[in-house]
Each structure stands twice: as C-alpha cells, then as structure tokens.
Design a protein around this nucleic acid. Structure first.
Length: 577
RNA sequence: GCCGAUGUAGUUCAGUGGUAGAACGCCAUCUUGGUAAGAUGGAGGCCGAGAGUUCGAUUCUCUCCAUCGGCUCCA
C-alpha cells in the first residue's frame, strides 16, 4: 500500500468528520505529511475545538471508515467546481489559481446516501476506507497555521494526525516519541545541571552551569587544537561595533530585522553583533596580504546576539545569544574550490568524532533579499556544486536558502533517533570582499580581490550541545563527560584510600569526584548512574588490601577489579576510543 | 510575532473566594554499609509580575512576562 495514499485519505476522512460535527466549517487544505497528515480548517467563532475534543473527532472518523466509503475521482469544469464550493472561500481561491479547464475532485461516500464529502484534490487516494486499519492512526494535536503558510494571511486551525499501515507501526512510532521526550535536552540539561534558563534573565538566554561549562570547554579545547593543526589562527573580537561598520558590511540594510536596536554611547550608535565577519575582516586588513599568504584563516568562538521572535525560541537549539564556532577563510578565486573541499571533508570528520554518522547535505541558493551581482552568485553556486559532485556526496538543493551575501552548503546531522538538525554551514562570499575592498597582491604586484568563505562547523555551541545531549541521552562519551569517574568508598575507613585515588587521577588530568557522603553504597551507586557518570570506582576492604579498585561502567554494572596503578593507563586508553 | 495551552517548594505535581499540601531532592542525626533508593527529624513557597472586582484573591477578570505544542523564521 502507498502510505501517502493512506495518509491523504485519512486527511479527507478527518475533514469529512469535521464537516459532520461542525456543519459551518470552512476548509483549507489537508495533505499527507511525514508520519501522518493534517487538515486546516476555519471554525466558526467560539467553536474552535480543544485537545479534549480530539477523541470525539477520532470516533467520528472511525464511524465514517466503518461505512466502507469509496474515494472517487471526478473531473469537473471550473464553473461546476465554483458552484459546489460556493460556500468555501479558501477552496474558491484555490480554484481561481488552478490552471487548465478541468478541476480534479475526490468524492468520498455516495451522494444522497448517508454521509459524504467532496474535496478539491489531485489524489491519489485509496479505493475505499476498507483498507484502513482502525487502530493505526491517531489525532495528535491542534495548532494554528497560516493559510498558505503566509504570515500576512489568516490563521486557520490545523488538526494533526499520525498514521501508519499497521497498529504495530503506530505503537512503535509512539514509543519512539516517548524515547525522544526522555532525551529532551531541556529536561536533561536541568537534571544533569548543564544549563538553566531564568525568567528574570530573559527568554533565549541560557546560563551555563559548572558541568555544562566543562562540556562546552571540552568541545572548545578539541576544536582549538584541531583547527590550529589545519592552519587556522584564533582571534577574539568585541561584542558591539559602531553602526557604520554594519552599514559597510550590508547587515544594516539586509539583516536589520535580526539585529537589536542601536545602543548610544557618547552620541555614537553601536550595534550588538549578530555575526563576527566584519571584525574578522578588520584583522585581515591590518596588514597588506600577498598571494603567498593565502589562504588566511581566522577562527573565533564568537558570541553573537540575534533577534529571534519569541515563538521561535526552543531550549538550546534556538536562542537569542549564542556562540558560533566561527571562522573565515580568505583565498584567491583559484583556491576557492580546494578550500571548500577541505572544509567539507574536515567538517564531516569533526562531526564524526562527536559520534554523528548520518548527514543530509544541502546546497542553498540565492534568497530573495541579496547583495552583489547575479554573475557572482552564479559563479559561487557553481563552485559549491562542483565540490559536492567531486566528493560524490549525496545532496539536495534548498532553493532560496542562501545568506544575503552568498550561497552555502549546509550539513544537517542525524541524531540517534533519526532526527535532523542543521549545524554545519559553509558560505562562499564575493560580496563582503567587495564592500570592504579586501585585496591581496598577486605575482605581478597588482591588487586582486579575494574570496571570503564563512563557516561554522558545529553551528553554535548551544545548538550543537543541545543536539549532543539528545544524541547521547545525556550519557556522554568519556572524553566529553563533565565528571569522568567518581570514587565511592564503601565505608568511612576507606575514605582516605578513595581520596588518594581521586587525587592521583585528577593529577593525571581526569575529572574525578570522590563521594564521601553518609549514604549506603547502593544509594551512592544509584546516584552515580542517574548522573550518567562513565565510571564508578568502588573501594572497600578488599580493594584496600589488594591495592585495587572495583570498576563499574555506566549502564554495564560491575566489570571487575583493576590494579590501582593501572587506572591511569586504562583511562588514557579510554580517551582514545 | 501569530493560534492554542500552561505558570503553586530546588524538581514533578495535588489543592482552595477566608494568605497552602504530597513525593523526590536538600540539610541534620542515627545507621558503618559490597554494586540502582536504610531510618528518623528539619528547613524551604509574596501560589510568575502588575492592575481590577470583592469585606477578603493563590483561586474570578484584564495586561505583561515566561514556558510548552504548532505556524512563520533560523546557527
């Protein structure tokens, strides 16, 4: 069975049920979507359904399905269609827009015989509702949605459902959803004391707690070393800059809606930075550059602030202040392809070290609001396309998804539950070099304009860590864990030995805690497991006598004793995995 | 920003037009433990903020703030 046919047919049946329950209803559209379907409606005032009404609607749908109604395609003229849908303003709008003389409609149920429903529709549909398993679908939520997805349009009421061929697939899906909820980084972030958000501080402004800060630093330290080995130099730039800087860069013209209002300092206006690029350009321009210097690569953990509308904020994955692992590469136009190729390769390598294995790659083209000339856009887009083709990567186009100054390649990473997150972005820019007159001296002693590549591999530390938390369900690999091991003495008399072990490991650079609280062993172990610490080191009489520790691995239980003298080595080995 | 829901202890939640309760967590004492919750006791709340209705509001109304699910937008 074609699952989309099933889902789309269920959308019709939903509309059919709504028609029966709310005769005054105005219909929007109702397509099949990933995992299910939805249908948009305009309910008469004060009749908007509440979540409590979903079971009632679902029941009605089942009644209709049991009638074994057939879906019949019918081609009719525009004039006839307008008559049939004369009370349906949204449908009339769609009819107006349709090209061709004949309009495709689908009818379910028999005209003049019991319940029936007719909709403007391309199809295809199931033959009959007989094919639907009554227990394989479920209405899930009610939400507002703009007509045609345009903000200036009226907001309709959307009812979502999930649907599968079999009851088992539905329950598997619901289980996965539950698992995803358990992994929610907002929940785990609080439980594991990684970060917090505070009403008084403001929306979208997370505060990093000690453990989250360690996690963040681990990531930064790794990138710091890695990028130096790849020829980058690290810089630091201020958080605000004069308005004029942003006028030169083009942000004031094309990115203003994402920026916060100017701050006045001694009659001069300053902007909080939404991007780091202009500052990086300044560092580049502090010297005359030769072709021999190219490419020049500057990296920064640059904290930026962007105005995000309140409704779009979400945990760490969508915030108003965030730190990009930002970098800019200036190169000759001949070097561009090679540099983008390196970036893409290294980007994927770095993502893999964080445990991500599956990716989706997008080529985002020129948006509506853009700077620069079309020829430049074409050239830059072609370079990106060539790189993708030569690396034999699977990719797709995101039309109009580019940034105002150039096209980009985005990598969405797939987490352990198969959900996609946009992190990596590589953007080719020929526009800022023009605006800032960024040049280098070529072999003949002449000035040449350079190409500028913007890139963030993790995207932002906030979003990346949010995704990382969900990917690992909070159980981070050894090298990332805020606390790598906790030493647990069985009784008071073992505390001295426990502290000694802790000190030795800490001296070797490991992040170790020693738990001396007055609790039972079981309780201390439980706490350690709940906190998702990779190793618990238990020491009691046995261990004290034999100069060993009992190792307990997260999620695996007791894995036996190890000589105290071999602990460091064991952990060093663990770091390399 | 828009549509809808929610806001009570550190956390998860009960509850009421007459100024509050549970569980877990936290702290203390007892217990001196062998691989996922030992016992007892205690501290913690301007019931998100402001205004209104009322003799009286945590409870009803309005506004704001924040959170959640979507739409739209994005690293």
């Amino acid at each position: 069975m074609d699952i989309n046919k099933l889902r789309h047919s269920l959308a019709h049946i939903l509309a059919h049920a709504i028609q029966e329950l709310y005769p005054e209803i105005k219909f929007g559209i109702g397509p099949a979507i990933e995992n299910g379907f939805y249908y948009d409606f305009e309910f008469p005032k004060s009749q908007n359904p509440k979540p409590e009404d979903l079971p009632k609607i679902e029941k009605k749908m089942k009644e209709i399905i049991r009638q074994n109604i057939a879906f019949k395609k019918k081609l009719i003229s525009k004039t006839d269609a307008k008559k049939i849908f004369k009370n349906q303003p949204y449908k009339l709008e769609l009819i107006e827009e349709l090209k061709g003389k004949k309009i495709s409609t689908y009818q379910s149920g028999k005209i003049n015989q019991g319940s029936q429903f007719i909709d403007l529709c391309q199809g295809p549909h199931l033959k009959s509702s007989k094919e639907i398993d009554l227990n394989s679908f479920k209405l899930t939520k009610i939400a507002g949605a703009y007509w045609k997805g345009l903000e200036k349009n009226k907001m309709l009421t959307r009812i979502y459902g999930v649907a599968f061929e079999t009851k088992k697939e539905l329950s598997d899906y619901l289980k996965t959803q539950q698992e995803a909820e358990k992994r929610d980084h907002r929940l785990l972030g609080q439980k594991l004391e990684l970060f917090l958000s505070d009403e008084e501080v403001g929306a979208g402004l997370p505060i990093w707690q000690p453990k989250g800060t360690i996690l963040r630093k681990n990531i930064q330290d790794y990138l710091y070393r890695e990028l130096i080995s790849q020829g980058y130099e690290w810089i630091i730039s201020p958080h605000i800059g004069k308005l004029n800087l942003w006028k030169t860069s083009g942000h004031w013209n094309l990115y203003r809606e994402n920026m916060y209002s100017p701050i006045k300092i001694e009659e001069e206006e300053y902007m909080i930075k939404p991007m780091n690029c202009p500052f990086h350009v300044k560092v580049l321009q502090s010297k005359v550059r030769s072709y021999k210097d190219m490419p020049v690569k500057y990296a920064e953990f640059g904290t930026v602030y962007r105005y995000e509308r309140s409704g779009t904020l979400h945990g760490l994955t969508r915030v108003r202040g965030f730190t990009q692992d930002d970098a800019h590469i200036w190169c000759t136009s001949e070097q561009t392809k090679q540099e983008v190729t390196k970036l893409l390769k290294n980007g994927l390598k770095i993502l893999k070290t964080f445990g991500f294995k599956d990716f989706e790659i997008y080529l985002s083209t020129r948006p509506e609001k853009y700077a620069g000339n079309l020829a430049g856009w074409q050239k830059a887009t072609n370079i990106l396309k060539q790189v993708l083709q030569e690396l034999k990567l699977k990719w797709q186009v995101d039309p109009g998804g580019g940034v105002f100054y150039g096209p980009k390649i985005d990598i969405k990473i797939k987490d352990s539950l198969g959900r996609l997150w946009q992190c990596t972005t590589i953007q080719v820019d020929f526009n800022l070099p023009e605006r800032f007159n960024i040049t280098y001296i070529d072999q003949k002693g002449k000035k040449q304009q350079s190409i500028m590549v913007h890139r963030a591999l993790l995207g932002s530390l906030e979003r990346f860590i949010g995704v990382l938390i969900e990917h690992y369900a909070g159980a981070f690999p050894f090298w990332l864990s805020p606390v790598q091991a906790r030493v647990i003495p069985v009784g008071k008399k073992h505390e001295k030995y426990a502290k000694k072990i802790g000190e030795e490991l800490a001296l070797a650079g490991f992040r170790i805690e020693v738990k001396t609280e007055n609790e039972t062993l079981s309780k201390k172990i439980r706490t350690g497991e709940v906190e998702k610490i990779p190793y618990l080191l238990i020491v009691g009489d046995k261990e004290l006598k034999a100069k060993t520790v009992s190792l307990r691995k997260r999620g695996k239980g007791d894995i036996g004793q190890i000589k105290q003298s071999q602990l460091c080595q064991k952990f060093l080995k663990e770091l390399k995995n």
